[in-house]
Design a protein around this nucleic acid. Structure first.
Length: 129
DNA sequence: TCCTTGACTCAGA
DNA sequence: CTCTGAGCCAAGG
């Protein structure tokens, strides 16, 4: 068995990078998909525009199968809201974040200005809004 | 092989 | 501030 164990190493690497980055998120802080996408490096052969448009989505896609070691609940969308396909888990995410000290708005929104992970090392040019 | 969905983001009203 | 529409490319059924 050593022929088809890894069909897409790049994708696995990308997912691994995502999980690793998410694991890097400190306690009591949150990060957005686009932020993570900007922190990690895109797989080779991908266009910048493609990564910009789908980087965040790939992160979420990778999260669809995130291990329990990954604090996926600390990952939210750029709107500062919980983004989940199913309501199941979203409630859990809210509780988990609240348990970490993250306050939610009445609409279930988080104050990114206060909780967004400022551990940006690559410092993406995303400082608007 | 074709079609549909997709843990998103930005811009405009 | 909130809501809606359009865009981008890939993976799964």
């Amino acid at each position: 068995m050593s022929s088809k164990f890894v069909t897409r190493p790049d994708k696995l690497i990308f997912n691994n990078l995502v999980w690793d980055t998410v694991r890097k998120i400190p306690h009591g802080q949150v990060a957005t998909y686009g932020q993570i996408a900007g922190l990690i490096q895109p797989p080779g052969g991908v266009k910048e525009q493609t990564y910009k448009a789908f980087g965040a989505r790939w992160v979420g896609s990778a999260m669809a199968s995130c291990p329990e070691d990954v604090p996926w609940h600390r990952v939210i969308n750029a709107q500062g809201k919980i983004s989940l396909r199913s309501t199941s888990g979203a409630g859990i995410q809210r509780e988990l974040l609240e348990s970490e000290g993250v306050n939610f708005d009445e609409r279930g929104r988080i104050n990114l200005k206060q909780y967004q992970w400022d551990g940006i090392e690559s410092k993406p040019p995303n400082e608007k809004r």
